[in-house]
Design a protein around this nucleic acid. Structure first.
Lengths: 225, 225
DNA sequence: CCTCCAGAAAAACGAGTGTTTAAAACATGC
DNA sequence: GCATGTTTTAAACACTCGTTTTTCTGGAGG
């Protein structure tokens, strides 16, 4: 290989350990010993632990961004003179998310990492993801806006994040939930099975009736606490 | 008070710091210095850091469990010969969740902690919560079952967790989302406002049409997990 | 008075952390 | 073959961590 396999051995091991235990709970010595690589190799190749974490994310998110952009291109080409239906948009996003880690065997790892990024990352990771991949997300939300013209902007904003929470929470905690489900319902759930179940739920949630308006406008709080 | 205020000063400070930075990222020295308390006080009063974390949770969850049980009692008393409607159940849960931290000013903290418990907790916290508060949750899900008799058991299980993800994800990441929303839509969202927006979404999601049944060949050989 | 003891305080302990340094091994081009 | 630049290695550094030990304080009870 062109790139020494030390760096990819580090990345492979790091992403698994990060997903299993979190970032702070995974030490560099833990990673390097499991990857059978010298401790200093991380700082040599990546510079710091923070940079290693970001590199782990980039290895997933860079291909994802690229694929998602081209998928949206194709979608826009197919609907030149009408809006793309919401179902198509969601379907495209789901397909793209599923496609990237399929090359490795680790959709679960990817989702765990996303969940950790949102819940653990105080600063640098959240910022890094926002700066690096905010553009493709903005493009997606704009298309969702055109697909749901009757929804007020703020309502759509919040519902999109509601659904983001649904997906990340479920898929990142999948192992624990799967164990409970398997014990209680004798069924073995796959990620693709979960996506199938998520589809109608997400669509229904986005198309839910609007909440009743608050009296006196947005700033008035009805009563104290 | 009977109990020395050292222990409550520790708890007050710990819950805020835990919510802001996570458990592993918050050191005991960090907590004790901010609480103006001696470092050894934590191990003296709680025994260990793990025990402190669990105590922080118990201070929220114990009153919640108690209130929720009595709220469900009243609800069952009002619907002796018919099923409790789903909306009533969700409303009761929301009200109870909102009631507990209202005595302090920290619903946000409570939700952050819940989110962390699900995403960070390797073992002991998840187990502790499950053992301690699984009963009231089981009671709730049983009532939800009676309220949605047409839903297959496994489908209801997953949809409940979908919605759990929605709520925890949104409310635990509220600060960051609120900043974005305020910047883009010039509106100041309160937690109660979010709950108002969540209501129709959750109801619609629970009542969404069932997903199409799986066809045989489609999902057969996926190695995703 | 003295004893007793829960509580607070200071100090130390040992283990583990990310990072840096300096020497060694290796590869590459001339 | 030698010099050059890159990568690997072992050792050390400078902290921070949770926990334990020890000492000190201040009342309550006999």
């Amino acid at each position: 290989m062109a790139q020494s396999d030390t760096v990819s051995r580090i990345l492979d091991t790091a992403e698994v350990l990060f997903a299993e235990r979190g970032f702070a709970e995974t030490s560099l010595r833990n990673i390097t010993s499991k990857a059978r690589v010298n401790l200093a190799a991380v700082n040599y190749h990546f510079g710091s632990k923070k940079a290693l974490i970001q590199a782990v994310f980039s290895r997933y998110l860079d291909p994802f961004t690229q694929r998602f952009h081209t998928a949206l291109d194709e979608l826009e080409a197919r609907y030149v003179d009408s809006h793309i239906p919401l179902e198509e948009l969601l379907e495209t996003m789901a397909t793209t998310v599923l496609a990237v880690p399929a090359e490795r065997n680790s959709l679960k790892v990817f989702m765990r990492l996303l969940g950790l990024a949102y819940s653990q990352a105080q600063g640098h990771l959240r910022r890094h993801i926002q700066e690096q991949y905010g553009e493709v997300f903005a493009r997606f939300t704009e298309l969702v806006r055109q697909a749901t013209p009757d929804l007020p902007d703020s309502e759509r904003f919040w519902r999109l994040h509601f659904m983001l929470g649904t997906v990340i929470f479920t898929l990142s905690g999948l192992d624990a939930l799967r164990d409970i489900a398997a014990k209680d319902y004798q069924e073995q759930v796959t990620v693709r099975d979960l996506v199938r179940r998520l589809r109608p739920v997400v669509v229904a949630a986005m198309n839910a009736p609007l909440p009743p308006a608050v009296e006196e406008g947005h700033y008035a709080n009805t009563n104290a606490s």
